[in-house]
Nucleic acid binder design. Structure first.
Lengths: 347, 347
DNA sequence: AAGGTCATGAGGCACGTACCTCATTTCCAC
DNA sequence: GTGGAAATGAGGTACGTGCCTCATGACCTT
């Protein structure tokens, strides 16, 4: 194979030549600026398609005055997983900046849909290319996403999706599959069956509801000898969860398993260890955080299912870049995998 | 905060000004070209350190005539996992090319250390910035890595590390931890203890030996009621592994578990299904491939431990970029996590 | 037909780095 | 102190795109 068989990537110059127009016109089409007749734009689009032209994002970001800007809106409060997400943003920040992508982090009061909607409404396309939100399903948020989208601000959902909205992309795990995995593991841990209690944060949260659905389905189909108690709601709070778990242990001396599909794991571990039944009851929880790590190490928790926050942030950035490159193309990202952690493969 | 508090990234111009030298001299220092006195180079280095200057890889790649070139040397043969790695390289290729990184894939006869060494010896820094190898520990390979390193070709190990070599980086999982995880899961699957057989490819392979070590240690420490049979060596081959598994099942009617820490999983599944003991024996295997997926779906395999090939290729590329940016700095990559797959969270 | 609006072309500067040439200065040894 | 080699400076072009200005031409309105 000789040198001249190597095909150079198509550039704007090639597109201009192929379409029989000037560079300026190609630029107007590419960047959606006015002043191009529909027929001319069509010629340009066709040349782009024929040449397989894709804009060079790096050259583009170098030429632009400002970096690509991604703003994360992450719930504030006592949820350790959300703190982990925020830290992941900070960890990734310098790396992203080296590629001219500026990450910004704003903490929003948890479950305050109105505040989130207000924040989104204030974003202009000039200061923000992509907004990333972790949100529950609320009409004002849906409206704000729609409005942001119209203003030219792409919105992506993280961790918890809003399928009916104008969000461009969702980065997170498949929560039904996560619940199924928990059920399948729990079933294998209890070959003789038994009672398993389920604790959730709130079933009004989409991800929690989906996990419960998957968990119950897996047990029903594969391990009919396992009976589910609950679900009980601990509202992702430490003390409330501790109280619920203590009560469960007291009232069910024969409790064989426990699945906490929400947060509040500090309370879970405390209640288990106080009861002296730690290690006897098979426990599965979610998200690798301080309390769940401690629980794994002490043996109070057997398995933690985790959505890798660093991986999620990385994929958000990859998706934002791809979107900046070609807003009309469907963006494909590496799926976020459900991490399964035992004491022995803690990261 | 006003506009002027925003600090621009330092550029070569800033470095030149700070060091009191010309752009050409900074360039000579940065790219290791000759013609700079040690004292002058020192001034430049100091200015770089003070300003925290980091070369802009994207501008750099744009200015260079050729792309960053990464060449993967992956074993050929019947190993499905290696095929998966090769496919992952192909999948990532267009994406990498958009960032001016050219991926090349060369299949080498498996376990032919001499052939791999020869290939490495032929590489020049002009055609290859980074060579990625999957290799066993052989003296000729170590020498070839050393020589390549001196010629300016960075070498990285993938999947299986060569710690004593001049390799710049290792991308892969912690195989001792993987073995421990398998042991820990197996122990939980067998609360009443029992016999567990271990099948390996070859204990001369570093990753296999490490997995066995971790598996045995975890069982010894946490589940003393589980007894290990083996290890037996199936040389990663389908038929040989099938024969071994069939014999194991025949000779041990009470066999409770099976851990295949190598390849040859097609044979494993076939032998299990032929025996009609499939689903009764708890089976743990490695790498998500055609046969292991089929085994999970049919119930012949309970758990598959996996090193995500796509993630590994992604991290190789990230490491190669970071290295091109600053060859002297220690490169930090996202660790590759051990994926744990059941029928319910298959990707 | 004149004046106005809109579409388009031509060209340049900028981003940060690589790499080239050529001229000039510095240094060292004899 | 002089020759020669080595070190350094000055300045250019290129990479691919964004964004700006200015000129020109086409078309529409009244």
């Amino acid at each position: 194979m000789s040198e001249d068989t190597i095909r150079r990537r198509a550039t704007v110059h090639d597109v201009a030549r192929a379409a029989g127009v000037s560079l300026a016109t190609v630029d107007r089409v590419l960047n959606g600026r006015p002043g191009v007749r529909a027929a001319t734009a069509e010629k340009v689009e066709q040349a782009i398609a024929e040449l397989g032209f894709a804009r060079d994002l790096n050259a583009s970001l170098m030429a632009r005055a400002r970096d690509l800007s991604v703003i994360f809106f992450i719930p504030d409060g006592t949820n350790e997983f959300m703190d982990g997400l925020a830290e992941a943003v900070h960890r990734r920040s310098p790396l992203a900046l080296a590629d001219r992508i500026h990450l910004d982090l704003r903490r929003i009061r948890a479950f305050d849909a109105a505040a989130l909607a207000r924040s989104l409404d204030q974003l202009s396309a000039a200061e923000c290319d992509c907004a990333v939100i972790v949100s529950s399903d609320a009409p004002e948020v849906l409206a704000a996403i729609e409005a942001a989208h119209r203003r030219g601000v792409t919105v992506m959902t993280l961790v918890s999706d809003l399928p009916g909205s104008a969000r461009r992309n969702f980065i997170g795990i498949d929560n039904v599959a996560a619940g199924r995995t928990a059920g399948s593991l729990m079933g294998r841990f209890l070959p003789q069956g038994g009672k398993v209690a389920v604790v959730a944060g709130s079933l009004h949260l989409r991800d929690h509801a989906e996990r419960l659905e998957g968990f119950a389905a897996a047990l029903r189909q594969e391990f009919p000898r396992v009976d589910i108690i609950g679900p009980l709601e601990g509202h992702d709070e430490r003390t409330e969860t501790a109280d619920i778990v203590s009560a469960l242990l007291d009232q069910n001396p024969d409790l064989a398993g426990l699945y906490n599909l929400g947060a509040g794991n500090g309370g879970l571990v405390a209640a288990l260890e106080k009861s002296s039944r730690s290690g006897t009851v098979r426990v599965i929880a979610h998200e690798l955080t301080g309390p769940t790590r401690a629980g794994l190490r002490s043996g109070a928790i057997d398995v933690v299912l985790d959505q890798n926050p660093d991986g999620e942030i990385r994929e958000v950035i990859a998706a934002a870049r791809a979107l900046a490159l070609d807003a009309s193309r469907v963006t494909v990202t590496d799926p976020i995998e459900i991490g399964i952690f035992l004491r022995d493969n803690l990261r």
